[in-house]
């Protein structure tokens, strides 16, 4: 039971994510939603790209610093075919923008604001993801 559960690192990493969201809001007044921040880079609105790009650079840099400390990049394991990866990527990119947020914007910042929209969105994407995993990895496997 729960042989893959890593409670300490999960809670510790979660706290850091919460601090990041709080810092962003407290200092810059922005909600830390990754899909909105990254998606906004594709919208050529002048003067708005600098901080978005900086956020993405910080996000990409962090695991590389981890690599410098531990000697290897943290494990990134995908066990599906290339076709599924492409379809999944398209759905995640379009869906998060169409639904106005992802795991960070709705799941953490939105629930943190007790927003009914974000609580609904998080319930929906969690439930659909869970059903998708059940169908693809149990019913069809």
């Amino acid at each position: 039971m729960f042989e893959n559960f890593t409670p300490v690192s999960a809670l510790g990493g979660g706290v850091l994510i919460g601090v990041a969201a709080a810092v962003m809001l407290w200092l810059s007044g922005r909600v830390m939603g990754v899909s909105g921040i990254a998606g906004g880079l594709l919208r050529p609105a002048g003067g708005d790209t600098g901080w978005r790009l900086a956020f993405v650079i910080g996000l990409v840099t962090a695991p590389l610093i981890g690599m410098a400390v531990t000697g290897s990049f943290p494990p990134v394991e995908l066990d599906v075919g290339l076709g599924t990866i492409v379809v999944g990527g398209l759905l995640v990119g379009f869906g998060t923008r169409f639904g106005g947020g992802c795991t960070s914007g709705h799941g953490i910042c939105g629930i943190g604001r007790l927003s009914a929209r974000s609580i609904a969105a998080t319930g929906i994407f969690m439930a659909v993801a869970g059903v998708t995993v059940y169908v693809t990895r149990h019913l069809l496997a």
Binding site: L91, C102, T132
Partner: peptide, 26 residues
């Protein structure tokens, strides 16, 4: 839009296991 977008995202997330933050960080 909120419902359809979130459901679409959930489908892609469940297929691969990546959401936007980790996909960029990786």
């Amino acid at each position: 839009r909120l419902v359809a977008g979130s459901a679409t995202f959930g489908l892609g997330w469940g297929l691969v296991g990546f959401c936007p933050g980790p996909a960029i960080a990786a």
